[in-house]
Write a protein that binds this DNA or RNA. Structure first.
Lengths: 234, 234
DNA sequence: AACTCACAAATTGTCGACAATCTTAATTTA
DNA sequence: TAAATTAAGATTGTCGACAATTTGTGAGTT
């Protein structure tokens, strides 16, 4: 449970105001599905639940909208985003382009220590993985850490913000609620390793290409879940 | 002036609430520089100026933050974004990746009528350009329309939102306040034409590459302004 | 003279209440 | 019976006031 807590706030948001807290709490609940996808959000109800005024809650809703977790309509209200197969494709097309760019930049801009840290992370990740076979949670955290480090290695502040603070929440939501299936886990290790090598060799072009493939594989994995779901409901 | 008004609201936002109006108004003033870049925003002052309460103004500020025109710090306040050379590079790296993707998708997904419309726009643009030589305003509007149509031609709703509603405001701000210099204008026509041809031939790979180059050239053009400014101030 | 500390002024964050809008369900009409 | 209308209820948008925090100023100390 403490691990889970540590996993909530990847991006370095320091919580100062009440709306910060509500934002982080709601974000976790939406990503994990505690607040159901596609459900309508009642401002009075949630304000009471979090013990804040509607103004504070609305501030949090605005920020949730910025990271694509809720959608607002004027005079109508707020809905949690719905995880559709169509949206998965759209979001992953964007993710692939942006994280490919990040990876290419990282090959130029990452410090040697940062690359070393990446390698260590991968080793440590491998060990944890062996011990806790099948535990998807640790895998999710480790994989996320890997991607975040590379993104930050791009040293492009705008890109970092776009990916880490905005887009990744929705990507996590897909991953957490749709899940990752078996053979993908071990395969991802090899792909991560190849990416690190490309970065270490300052081969930006290759690093970008490998990252894009890695993301495509991840997308296909989630897509499978949708296909399974569609087959079952028919 | 009416032309200018028409140019304010590219993305199809229907203004229903008071904060919608304040958002659109402030956005225009920031992009055009009426509200100075880098300046601090006083909530009480601006609320009075627009004739709304602080709550309404803050709603608008939240949305301006979502499109990168202002930056907030908790308990400190809001600042208009500063147009630096570093940020230009960062934003254009992102723009290049995203709009390159959009252009590639457009080559697959644009309807024939849409492509025809693009061609007509370019012709019309060329005529207007000849008549009003040097009038950078019309050029800006025409160029923008061109890019918007291609982006929308991608048919990727997430990408469209990201580019048209979020990123493009900041890009416009650079273009309007830094400007575009002479030889670039006519060159852009040829580049636009080549892009349309690639799209018409459903050659996504080429279309992406041409768009990325086109954007790089645009970036270099603005970069020149910064260099000139730096040389003068030294 | 420079630095620290404390106080005052101003700014942002939060709250509860009211106004405007949408939704829903009952009622009327064709 | 089905569609259109209207009225009641609920929800969102907006406001002004208060609380918490930051910033700027000035007195005091080294």
């Amino acid at each position: 449970m403490t691990e889970q807590k540590a996993n909530d706030n990847y991006n370095d948001i320091t919580i100062t105001t009440a709306s910060d807290q509500v934002f982080v709490d709601m974000r976790r609940e939406i990503v994990q599905g505690t607040i159901e996808q596609g459900s309508k959000i009642s401002e009075p109800e949630l304000a009471k639940r979090y013990g804040v005024s509607r103004a504070t809650l609305r501030e949090a809703l605005n920020r949730l909208e910025s990271c694509y977790l809720v959608e607002r309509k004027a005079n109508v209200g707020c809905r949690v985003v719905a995880l559709t197969a169509e949206r998965l494709i759209e979001v992953y097309q964007v993710r692939s382009a942006l994280e490919g760019l990040a990876c290419r930049l990282a090959a130029d801009n990452m410090e040697p220590e940062e690359v070393q840290g990446l390698k260590q992370l991968l080793n440590q990740h491998l060990q944890t993985q062996r011990v806790k076979e099948g535990e998807s949670y640790y895998q999710e955290a480790g994989d996320l850490d890997f991607h975040y480090r590379i993104i930050k290695g791009s040293k492009n502040a705008h890109l970092i913000h776009l990916l880490c603070n905005e887009l990744y929440q929705l990507i996590r939501m897909y991953r957490v609620q749709m899940g990752m299936v078996g053979p993908r886990v071990s395969k991802a290790f090899d792909e991560h390793l190849a990416i690190i090598n490309a970065i270490e060799n300052h081969d930006g072009e290759l690093a970008e290409m490998l990252m894009k493939r890695h993301i495509s594989a991840s997308q296909a994995n989630i897509q499978t879940k949708f296909d399974l779901l569609a087959a079952k409901n028919q």
